[in-house]
């Protein structure tokens, strides 16, 4: 039996979760929300996390109803992510690990998303599309690594959506992507946007510049509505993502596909992926916002797997790093 507590704070979400043998006991979360038209900056985000981390920790422990003595392992996000928010949360994990005299494990954020997705959906060996504000990767497991088959060669898909939301001055509550999704449902007219797929990689920066430049002009002329633009943007960038995922599935001969990451809770993306999977006779696995969006339980889950396979981390290795690729981690818990 393994009970793990996980601390996550690599971007604008602060989450602490407790997992006991794959069962989520608690998973509270707070999101730092900025005014419309603005993104979140590292310093302010770190301040947010510092202000509410103890309250969230208390909530996680109270909801889980466990004694801290029963915890086997303390896990935190080692990277990748924004430096200041990462460190703000890691320092709390390091402190409680010493207070409770428990071992500490630093977890790769991307791996945590994948492991949580596998736990919740029961997917065995899926091709993974990991889409969030900072990451866009198509991943498949082979020979003890999660290997990246395709990824963005510039900005992440969530970043592209967030920045377009700023152009339209959409609310960041609960998230810019959610508001784009709601507007897109009412869009009808399709504006053709640059579609950039390079092998199994995608690029969004040209598309973003294009739509940022044209948006005001086509809105003022009344040719397109903001809803049409949200619709066109979603249709185009999601089609790119589905295409590279399908290429990777064809390349690896995979019959399962799993979507993880914050953008992964978009229903239209899930619907498109479902159609693609159906056509290939493959199975789609997706989770909802509780587990798609950054949370503490996923860090605890990946940490439990590492712990069960016998991994330990020396105290001096429990630092944070902004750059930490998915394929750098040796996956000791899978065959």
């Amino acid at each position: 039996m393994v009970i793990a507590i996980g601390f996550e704070g690599s971007a604008n979400k602060l989450g602490i979760g407790i997992i006991k043998d794959g069962v989520v006991l608690s998973n509270p979360r707070r999101t730092y929300i900025t005014p419309p038209g603005q993104g979140f900056l590292p310093r302010d985000t770190a301040k947010h996390h510092q202000d509410c981390v103890l309250e969230v920790l208390k909530e996680a422990l109270d909801t889980a109803k466990i004694d801290t003595n029963d915890i086997d392992i303390v896990c935190y996000t080692k990277g990748p992510g924004m430096g200041a928010p990462l460190v703000s949360v890691a320092v709390v994990a390091r402190t409680v690990a010493q207070l409770w005299k428990k071992p500490l494990l630093g977890v790769n954020h991307c791996i945590a998303h994948i492991e949580m997705g596998r736990l919740i959906t029961g997917a065995q060996n899926p091709t993974v599309l990991y889409v969030s504000g900072g990451n866009t990767q198509v991943i498949s497991y082979s020979q003890r690594r999660y290997r990246i088959f395709g990824e963005t060669i510039d900005i992440a898909v969530g970043n592209c959506l967030d920045r377009f939301a700023r152009v339209l001055k959409l609310s960041n509550n609960p998230s810019p992507g959610y508001n784009i999704e709601q507007m897109a449902k009412r869009g009808k007219k399709f504006l053709e946007l640059p579609y950039v797929v390079k092998g199994m990689d995608v690029s969004f920066s040209g598309l973003l510049s294009f739509i940022e430049e044209r948006a005001n002009q086509v809105l003022e002329s009344g040719e397109f509505t903001p809803e049409d633009l949200c619709f066109s943007l979603q249709e185009t960038i999601f089609a790119m993502l589905i295409e590279i995922t399908e290429r990777a599935m064809a390349h690896c001969g995979s019959q399962e596909v799993l979507i993880v990451g914050g953008v992964g809770c978009n229903k239209r993306l899930q619907e498109m992926m479902g159609i693609m999977a159906d056509e290939r006779g493959a199975k789609l696995f997706a989770t909802d916002e509780r587990f798609c969006i950054d949370n503490g339980a996923m860090i605890a889950q990946a940490g439990s797997e590492m712990f069960r396979s016998g991994q330990t981390m020396a105290w001096e290795d429990t630092f944070c790093t902004q750059r930490y690729r998915t394929d750098e981690v040796e996956v000791t818990w899978r065959d």
């Binding site: 992510g81 969030s132 990824e151 902004q322």
Partner: peptide, 13 residues
């Protein structure tokens, strides 16, 4: 140069 760019995207999660 492109390889360096490729690494960059792992920064924020």
């Amino acid at each position: 140069e492109i390889r360096m760019r490729g690494r960059k995207r792992t920064m924020v999660g």
